[in-house]
């Protein structure tokens, strides 16, 4: 797809996002992925780090919110393609004049938006259950970073969606894809704790730069030049992800039409 399409189809993207939210809010699994799972992770982490002080509480709130964001993208977006296949709507979507990646972009937007709930839930837990005074060190920059991070997560999610279109069985690999991203992107602890050889891999993942900038603007006074660098890397890797996703969608949709995997028959 020409990604000018995202702007050409902005209205469609919003309708897709609206309908995805309406559909998913009546699904118990979605509520688990975006509310209860981050809550469990936040409680565990807050207990483990309770002697470290309120800065760590903010770190945990942001980190568990990020885990919710990633889980939601991986499971909800991925599953939604399989659900579309089982309910017979995947063929209808692929047979539309709107490019399929525009539709997935709208779905991812809905999931990322819903995932902000994860962060709010974690924030409420830390503040009211554990009594931490929670304040952001650079609130305006934090919210700007949050917007950029949402875009970076959407683009990262787009690179995975084509696999779900092509392979019915990719669902089996979802669990294996969940924790490596938590760990490699430094959602809950700094990647400095990992072996050195993993660091370049982390640098290639846009959620790493999102986590770095979000943690930096929420718990530490991140120098502006470092923040700018994180933003630049997020934008750069988001563009790279969009290009990769565009090619993958083209290949996978063609292959799905050759191998007849758009339907379950």
């Amino acid at each position: 797809m020409n990604y000018g399409n995202i702007f050409k189809y902005w209205r469609t993207v919003l309708v897709v996002a609206e309908m995805s939210i309406r559909t998913q809010f009546s699904d118990g699994f979605v509520l688990f992925a975006i509310v209860f799972q981050p809550m469990i992770i936040a409680i565990l982490a807050l207990f483990m780090l309770r002697e470290k002080g309120s800065d760590y509480a903010v770190f945990v709130v942001v980190g568990s919110g990020l885990t919710g964001l990633w889980s939601s993208l991986l499971f909800v977006s991925g599953n939604s393609i399989n659900v579309e296949r089982w309910t017979g709507t995947l063929e209808s979507l692929v047979g539309m004049p709107t490019p399929f990646d525009v539709i997935v972009f709208g779905k991812n937007l809905a999931n990322v938006f819903q995932s902000l709930l994860s962060m709010i839930v974690s924030y409420a837990l830390a503040a009211y259950l554990f009594g931490y005074p929670l304040s952001l060190t650079q609130p305006i920059l934090f919210f700007l970073t949050l917007l950029l991070s949402m875009f970076a997560f959407i683009c990262f999610g787009l690179t995975i969606a084509p696999l779900f279109v092509m392979y019915r069985s990719v669902q089996q690999w979802q669990n294996a894809m969940e924790f490596p991203v938590y760990i490699m992107c430094g959602f809950l602890f700094p990647i400095a704790l990992l072996p050195n050889w993993t660091t370049p891999l982390s640098y290639l993942l846009p959620p790493y730069w999102a986590a770095l900038a979000l943690h930096g603007t929420s718990t530490a006074m991140m120098p502006f030049d470092q923040l700018l660098f994180s933003w630049s890397m997020m934008i750069l890797f988001s563009i790279v992800d969009l290009i990769i996703a565009s090619q993958l969608f083209k290949i996978m949709l063609y292959k799905a039409r050759v191998d007849a995997t758009l339907d379950v028959d």
């Binding site: 209205r11 469609t12 309708v15 897709v16 309908m19 209808s92 979507l93 539309m96 004049p97 709107t98 539709i103």
Partner: peptide, 8 residues
């Protein structure tokens, strides 16, 4: 409404 949007 959803499909109308997808049909442009």
């Amino acid at each position: 409404r959803y499909f109308a949007s997808l049909y442009g």
